[in-house]
Structure formats: C-alpha cells, structure tokens
Measured scan of single mutants.
Amino acid sequence: TTEYTFTDDEEARRAIEELKKRGLTFRYEKHGTTWRVRVD
C-alpha cells in the first residue's frame, strides 16, 4: 500500500483521475484541506 498526501485540490483530483485511468484500486479521504490517497 502506498499513501499519498495532497493539500491542493486540483493536484489531488488529477492524481485520482490518473489512478482511475490506470485501473488501480485506491481509496481516498479528505480531512479539511488535506487529501489522503491510498493505493493498494
């Protein structure tokens, strides 16, 4: 499991789109302004 942290909404959304394109399994949660994206 790899975890990424983003504080920029645009950056987080781009990363999420990219992961979807690659067909990877991931989860994300947003805490205030911080996004945590975990890739299995």
Rank of each mutant, 00 (worst) to 15 (best):
D40F: 15
I16K: 01
D8I: 05
E18Y: 13
F6H: 01
D9H: 07
D9Q: 08
F6I: 03
G32E: 05
R14P: 01
T7P: 03
T7M: 08
L24T: 04
T33G: 14
V39T: 03
E18R: 07
Y4V: 04
K20T: 12
E11C: 12
F6L: 02
T5K: 05
T25P: 08
D8R: 05
A15M: 15
E17N: 10
K20E: 09
D40Y: 15
R13Y: 12
L24P: 00
E29K: 07
G32F: 03
K21D: 05
R13T: 08
K30E: 02
W35D: 01
V39Q: 02
E3I: 14
L19A: 04
Y4Q: 03
I16P: 01
V39D: 01
R14K: 12
K30W: 04
V39I: 11
L24S: 04
G32Q: 04
R27W: 15
H31T: 13
E18A: 10
E11Y: 05
V39N: 00
F26Y: 07
W35P: 00
E11W: 06
D9R: 09
Y28N: 01
F26G: 01
D9M: 08
T2C: 15
Y28F: 11
V37M: 03
R22L: 13
G32S: 03
T1A: 11
H31A: 08
T2D: 05
E17K: 10
E3N: 05
F26I: 11
R22W: 08
K30V: 08
E10V: 10
K30Y: 05
L24G: 03
F26Q: 00
W35E: 01
K20W: 08
L19S: 00
L24M: 09
E18Q: 10
F26P: 05
R27K: 10
D8W: 03
E18V: 10
D9N: 07
D8M: 04
I16Y: 02
K30S: 03
T1V: 14
A15Q: 05
E10Q: 09
E10Y: 10
H31M: 12
L24I: 12
E10W: 09
T7K: 07
G23L: 03
T5G: 02
T5M: 10
I16Q: 01
L24F: 11
G23V: 01
R14D: 06
V37F: 09
Y28G: 02
R14I: 09
